[in-house]
């Protein structure tokens, strides 16, 4: 296991470093500018009324002329740039095995070693989880640095942020599980990435659009994004236990299905 983890680390260290650096910079910048945005919110909403819908969709709440600073700070954890970095990390990491190994033909060499497919799958998942925890840690570090630079009492206590980050981690594990499932079923990494991105994008879109179209409320319940709701935590909702359980269950089920398929399927590189 240790040898496999070291191999995975060697192959993914730059992905982790780049994602950590990117999320750190994005969080520092967002943390510094969000208080200013919040101050100008009434003017902005009057000038650009469509912004009201955009922000409502993002935060998952009805926006009037103003939003409390604490709730508005949820933007930091749902901003599209933040999501793109985190999703990219998960999708790249979780399509490495078996899809990418089969695609580049190195799986023959890897599985020619005395390792079971299950162990390789487990070691990849462990490495991915450690890496995503590190990336989320850097997001928090960026936020803390931004807070000290902004010198504002705008933000809620770090305890509440940690609850959001735990919810975010479970969301990312669920996305990782879904991606692993597609990877387990593919011989081409491109297909696995394509399907994973399509599912995550569709999930986001349904969740976003369900704010205005009641017809999408039922389909939105199967969207993983529906179970990540930072504004709810910041509005004093406490621990989103139900959301966390659902995300953890999705992660476990999809990951286990992926593992089962990987260990049972035939592997063809030619």
């Amino acid at each position: 296991m240790c040898g496999l983890l070291l191999k995975t680390w060697r192959e993914t260290r730059w992905l982790t470093v780049i994602c950590c650096a990117a999320i750190l910079v994005v969080e520092v910048v967002l943390t510094c500018i969000v208080p200013r945005l919040q101050q100008n919110l009434p003017t902005m909403l009057n000038s650009f009324p469509f912004m009201r819908d955009m922000i409502s969709g993002l935060l998952g709440i009805k926006v009037r002329n103003t939003i409390s600073p604490a709730v508005f700070s949820a933007i930091l954890w749902i901003h599209p740039v933040v999501f793109v970095i985190l999703w990219a990390h998960q999708v790249i990491f979780h399509t490495r095995y078996p899809a990418a190994e089969i695609d580049r033909g190195t799986v023959d060499l890897l599985l020619g070693l005395p390792v079971s497919r299950g162990w390789v799958y487990l070691s990849e998942a462990l490495a991915a989880t450690m890496s995503v925890i590190l990336v989320i840690g850097f997001a928090l570090l960026g936020h803390v640095i931004g807070r000290s630079l902004a010198r504002s009492g705008f933000y809620p206590p770090v305890g509440q942020i940690l609850i959001i980050l735990l919810n975010l981690l479970l969301l990312l594990l669920a996305i990782g599980g879904i991606t692993s499932l597609f990877s387990a079923m593919s011989n081409r990494r491109g297909y696995a990435i394509g399907w994973a991105v399509a599912v995550v994008a569709a999930s986001s879109l349904v969740s976003f659009a369900a704010q205005w179209w009641p017809i999408l409320e039922t389909p939105a319940t199967v969207s993983v994004m529906e179970y990540y709701y930072p504004a709810g935590v910041l509005m004093g909702g406490g621990w989103p236990v139900r959301n966390m359980i659902v995300l953890a269950a999705v992660a476990m089920v999809t990951w286990s299905l992926g593992a089962s398929i990987t260990t049972r399927r035939s592997i063809c590189t030619v």
Partner: peptide, 18 residues
């Protein structure tokens, strides 16, 4: 499969190395 490969050395036909 995993246990067997302790005793086996394998060279694939279409060899792809990292």
């Amino acid at each position: 499969s995993a246990a067997i490969k302790r005793e086996v050395g394998y060279l694939p036909g279409d060899l792809r190395l990292y």
